[in-house]
Write a protein that binds this DNA or RNA. Structure first.
Lengths: 170, 170
DNA sequence: ATTTCAGTTCATTTTAAATTGAACTTTTAG
DNA sequence: CTAAAAGTTCAATTTAAAATGAACTGAAAT
């Protein structure tokens, strides 16, 4: 991918700057949360577009490959960040960003964060069973620390839904 | 780095398993938030250790290079996740994890998230100035969308301190 | 049924990030 | 002051992740 600097058809008018900036800002955002920049770029492009875009247009404007575009679009779709449509009797799909942002964030929390936190929770639970097998002198410290992480993990998990609420409202 | 599977001196007793699991869990956590796994590993090791460890011990137990260890330790230190000490008249530094976890999270929020969100905020502000230069028919939509992201950005920034509060308590 | 175009898949390549390690600097011990 | 060990730095290497693109699948138009 390229961060948009082509010669002829991508100029410096307000519209292009806006688009480029949205692409870039959302790329950064994606990156910040450990997602591929290209996914952010796609979302940013759709976000800045008035009308639905086809995959082909996305490929052209962002200068990414069909493969990337296809995968990125799928990811974004099942995060709930974008919508795929097929106009009645049209051949191609078109995509729109859900500009509310809420679904994007909710999707990220549910599909990315929660599963990982849950898996950690499970591992921590397993570790508890191990405590009795420790040398007696280490047990108290170990138990304490294990409790700490467990508590934090729990806290984080109960916190996410709340966070969603607080971040709510478009 | 390796995820610990050496032959002689790293066995399957409860203590080793615990250590290995902490290392692994914190590696995952680091990764989840876009940090190098090795940093998580170091923190995990310190977290599981009863006593302060020297850099050399860390290098040996995790089988990472001195370079990695040095950099990782520095990062963790200025995140506020670990403490460096030098016992009176000792030659070497030793390191302890701050088991409260709060500083780790606070550090991450302040040193990683906040700066990025601020920089986005600045860019969004710049974009506002661009609105008048847009073709009249696009202006309303553009303005609306820009407002949306800006609002979210703001929300996220005001949310972080609150999040910290809510996640508080060891 | 066949051709053509949209979209997907996945082995290969590219790129970016993390890790290494050798050279260097700093510290303290003699 | 010198030697030796601890710790840092950074160019070079390795590794993991993302992007590519060619081959494939499916779907509609003829």
């Amino acid at each position: 991918m390229r961060e948009v600097t082509s010669p002829g058809f991508d100029s410096n008018d307000a519209q292009s700057v806006l688009e480029r900036e949205f692409v870039s800002i959302f790329s950064d955002l994606a990156d910040l949360f450990g997602n591929p920049r290209s996914h952010g770029a796609i979302y940013g492009l759709l976000f800045s577009s008035e009308r639905p875009l086809s995959m082909e247009e996305i490929v052209t404007r962002l200068e990414i490959s069909k493969g990337s575009a296809s995968q990125g679009l799928r990811q974004l779709e099942d995060l709930g960040a974008i919508l795929r449509a097929r106009e009645n009797g049209e051949r191609i799909h078109t995509y729109v960003a859900r500009i509310e942002l809420k679904p994007l964030i909710a999707g990220f929390l549910h599909k990315r964060l929660t599963p990982r936190l849950n898996s950690s929770a499970a591992r921590l639970k397993e570790l508890e069973k191990l405590l009795p097998a420790l040398p007696a002198d280490m047990r108290p410290t170990a138990r304490l620390r294990l409790k700490r992480v467990t508590k934090w993990n729990k806290r984080a998990r109960t916190f996410l839904p709340l966070a969603q609420k607080l971040l709510q409202a478009d």
